[in-house]
Amino acid sequence: MYAQMIKSEKSNETPEELAAFQARIDRGERIEPKEWMPEGYRKTLIRQIGQHAHSEIVGQLPEGNWVTRAPTLERKAILLAKVQDEAGHGLYLYSACETLGVSRDELFEKLHSGAMKYSSIFNYPTLTWADMGAVGWLVDGAAIMNQVPLQRTSYGPYARAMIRICKEESFHQRQGYSVMMKMAQGTEAQKAMAQDALNRFWYPALMMFGPSDAESVHSEQNMAWKIKINSNDELRQRFVNETVPQAHYLGLTVPDENLKFNEETGNWDFSQPDWTEFFEVLKGNGPCNEERLGARRKAWDDGEWFRDGLSAYAEKSAARRAAVAAE
């Protein structure tokens, strides 16, 4: 997902304190910034929300790659609006994260140094225009699967950020699917591009949910805290069930020989992605890790003089106002 494999942190509080906190969560209460919370809850949330925010920001890059080469002015405007939304999502999430006592610049610093991660999916390249279709349809589609339940997460600012984000995501997925429809109904060459995009993005999209966490202690703790709502396998299955008929409608083939509807379970049975590849990408060895982080660092460093200029201007005009007021 946008936040993958979140380890839960240990807490040093007394069993009584922890039990009282857990009872609040079990009653469905929202935890708000200034309220007491276990250190482990706070730290785990910083990691999860921070990683989610970084994913939104880095996620702009593979799509930004096509803004100047969109096939029509309308598609260009739509893609630009979509990418701009992702910047907004990043900002909502950084704000939510800051309420836990970490600053946005510190989070940036950790992203740029590699101390914090972002979703594995954004380390894959976007090679053709059809990839803009596949990304909106599959990547935003997978994100929605995870973000909709998170609107009910226990931490108030996180839940509220999710509600805003979910309102905007549906546009993202639909614009992607509409690109796919156009390509799939186009010439043979265009249809082949659409198929190729699906072939390349199918398994990386399945990886977004993370490896099976059925037996993970971390996910058990995170679920008890309601900062994780569903298991990875559960969400992946939901995603497959929803996406396969959409692929069939396009007349495209899901690149999985084992894909089969299971009458008994009502689910589509499917093959697992290559988890070795997933761990390699997480470690930094994906096709675009260096390029993505490089682009982020460059944007931050090249923007420094501008940020400083605005700060200097703000200080000067504040001083001027103070002088006028003193007269």
Binding site: G88, L91, Y92, S95, L310
Partner: peptide, 21 residues
Amino acid sequence: GSLHAPDAEMAINHARDVYTR
């Protein structure tokens, strides 16, 4: 919600972009 900006004027500009798209 909240956001970072160097001064009030920029805060309004950013708020326009972040919260009223």
